[in-house]
Simulated scan of single mutants.
Amino acid sequence: MKLFLDDERPTPEGWNRVYWPSEAIRLLEAGGVTELSLDHDLGDDTRGTGYDVIVWIEEAVALRGFVPPVIKIHSANPSAAEKMQAGVHAIEKLVRERSIHRDIRSRAPRTSK
């Protein structure tokens, strides 16, 4: 599923739209999201921003082995988009490190007792 978080823009064809971070996170937890496109400013900061989704994904990858979808940022807020993109880079780094550690463990010689 392609998931589009935004409060104003039209939903691209082939994408499923949500308006709030909690909706996006619920679908990410359920699995099956292959691509995610995030806006930052959603009209009610008390309900969250697109950055909250980035923070959730980063924590889920680091602590629970979550496999993130492809993440795109489409926010028109330049400073927020930059902060979100930095989060995406941190997520990608965590995924690469986890993959490297998994490869090392799979190649390590096994000892028997």
Rank of each mutant, 00 (worst) to 15 (best):
T46I: 09
I57S: 05
V33G: 06
L42M: 05
V70R: 07
D41P: 07
D45V: 08
E29G: 14
E29N: 15
L28K: 07
E35F: 02
D45P: 10
V55N: 04
E58A: 14
I71C: 09
V53H: 01
N16I: 12
E29C: 15
T49M: 03
G14A: 02
L36F: 06
T34S: 01
A30G: 13
L28V: 13
R47Y: 06
V61W: 01
G43D: 02
R47F: 06
G31Q: 12
G43M: 01
S22C: 10
L27Q: 13
R17H: 04
E58N: 15
S37A: 15
H74N: 12
G48H: 02
V70H: 05
D44N: 08
L27A: 11
I54H: 03
E35T: 09
W20Q: 00
G14M: 03
K72P: 15
E29D: 15
V33F: 01
Y19S: 00
P69H: 02
W15F: 08
E29S: 15
V53Y: 01
V53R: 00
I25E: 07
V67D: 11
D52G: 06
S75H: 08
Y19R: 00
I71L: 10
G43F: 01
P69K: 02
L42V: 07
L27G: 11
G43T: 04
D44E: 09
V61G: 05
E58F: 09
I71V: 12
V53C: 03
G32A: 11
A62M: 07
G31D: 11
P68L: 03
L27N: 14
S75F: 08
R26K: 13
V67E: 10
V70Y: 03
D45F: 01
V18W: 00
E58G: 15
V18N: 00
A30Q: 13
K72W: 14
I57F: 04
F66E: 12
V33I: 13
A24Q: 00
I71R: 04
D41R: 05
G43R: 01
R47N: 12
G48Y: 01
E35G: 06
R64Q: 14
R47A: 10
I54W: 03
I25A: 05
G48E: 04
E23G: 08
P68A: 04
E23F: 02
R64F: 13
L63P: 10
V18S: 00
H74A: 13
R26M: 12
G50T: 09
H40D: 12
S75P: 15
H74D: 14
G50N: 07
E58M: 11
G65N: 10
H40Q: 06
W15N: 07
A62T: 10
P68Y: 02
P68T: 08
R26A: 15
V67Q: 09
L63R: 14
V61I: 08
D39P: 14
A62P: 08
R47M: 12
L36K: 06
G14D: 05
D44G: 03
T34V: 05
P68S: 05
R26F: 08
S22H: 09
V33N: 04
Y51D: 08
R17I: 03
L42R: 01
T49C: 03
